[in-house]
Amino acid sequence: MVGAVRQSVNGVDLGRALRELREASGKEAKAVARSALMSPSKLSKILNGKMAPSVADVERILAALDVPPEVSAQLAAAARTVATEATAWRIYRRSGLHKHQEEIRAIESQAKSLRVFQASCIPGLLQSPEYIRSILQTSGLSDESLEKMVGARVCRQEVLHESRRRFSFLVTESVLRWRLVRPAMMAAQLDKLVKVSRMANISVGVVPLIALMPEPPTCSFVLFDARMAVVEIPHAEVTARDPRDVEQYVRKYESFERVALLGDAMREFVERIRDEYVTEQETA
């Protein structure tokens, strides 16, 4: 079929199978799209074989259709067979980075626990609006796109207040010291980091530079429960769902957590660096 992107795995045509399930359910496509947290046009492309669905897309559509567990398990397994996806950042910029934030928010809303390791900047869920705006100003976004991006990322942070979810963040000391924004902004950002760390469902750890590193911190990544890892590399975002691949990132996270400062020790450490920024700002 010209123009189609059929994703057939082990004889299962995912688009066609999902379309038939939607028709059998009697549910309107718009209602299914709304429940699956995607646009009607995206759902239409998936069901008609014009877009290969991600595993997350398949899982959300199946949940919206209330598919029997045995059927859901079969199709989800077929989708996971193609377990690693890489999407170039230029693709997200083309469609709108703020829309990608909404997609991430949809994935986060389905996870009971998130573990974030960052070696380059403050994790998005912990960033202040000023920090977000400042680090994105060199990304080539228009003023309108930049403000949409700031708003979308701040909106994502609402999930932190859902007490039934568990959030764990690890950053390297270098993240606290990178001169990505002005000293006053960094001081305010580190204040936010300390404040958030006091929430009952949130853990924040810092891997100090003097720690004996278990391995090089080669990339930043997010673990959604223990079923999916999203890895940031310079040109793309890579999503891994194969359990063997995800387990590598689980082990990596746990190895850094063992040498990280946590709780009061972390807060005292961050506050000392915050005070350095404050002093620098006052004497500038």
Rank of each mutant, 00 (worst) to 15 (best):
S44V: 00
K42M: 14
K45M: 14
S39R: 13
G15D: 04
E23L: 15
A33H: 02
N48L: 11
G26N: 06
G15M: 10
N10E: 13
S44F: 03
R22H: 08
A24T: 07
V12T: 10
P40Q: 10
V12M: 05
K27Y: 08
S41L: 11
S44E: 08
A29F: 09
A31N: 13
G49L: 07
R34P: 02
S35R: 13
K45A: 14
I46E: 01
E20W: 07
R22F: 01
V9A: 03
A17V: 06
A29W: 03
A33E: 03
G49D: 12
A17R: 11
A24I: 00
S39M: 00
G49C: 05
A33N: 02
V9N: 02
E23V: 14
K27T: 08
K30H: 10
K42W: 10
S44Q: 12
V12D: 07
L47M: 13
G11M: 01
S35V: 00
A36N: 04
D13H: 05
G26Q: 11
M38F: 05
A36G: 04
R22D: 03
G26S: 08
G26W: 04
N10K: 10
L43I: 02
K27V: 01
A31D: 15
V32T: 10
K42S: 09
R19V: 00
A36P: 01
R22M: 12
L18P: 13
A24K: 15
L37T: 11
A33I: 12
L47R: 13
R19E: 02
L47I: 02
K45C: 05
V9P: 00
A36S: 10
R16I: 01
V9C: 04
L43S: 10
A24V: 01
A36K: 10
L43A: 09
N48P: 03
S25L: 11
L43P: 11
P40F: 03
G15R: 14
A17K: 08
E20R: 14
E20L: 11
K27H: 13
G15Y: 06
S39Q: 09
A31Y: 04
A31W: 11
A29I: 12
V32C: 04
A33R: 03
K30W: 11
R19C: 02
S44I: 00
N48A: 06
S41F: 08
K45W: 11
S35M: 06
E23S: 08
G11L: 00
L21W: 09
G15V: 11
V12E: 05
L47Q: 15
S35F: 00
I46V: 15
I46W: 06
V32P: 02
V12L: 09
K30V: 14
I46C: 06
R34M: 13
E23T: 12
L18G: 05
K30C: 07
P40Y: 11
A17L: 03
R16S: 05
K30T: 12
R16H: 12
K30I: 15
R22V: 04
S41T: 14
G49T: 11
N48C: 06
V12N: 05
A17N: 09
A29R: 15
A17Q: 13
A17M: 10
M38T: 04
S39G: 05
A31Q: 11
S41R: 14
K27R: 15
V32N: 08
L37S: 15
V32M: 06
A31S: 14
G15Q: 07
P40K: 10
K45S: 10
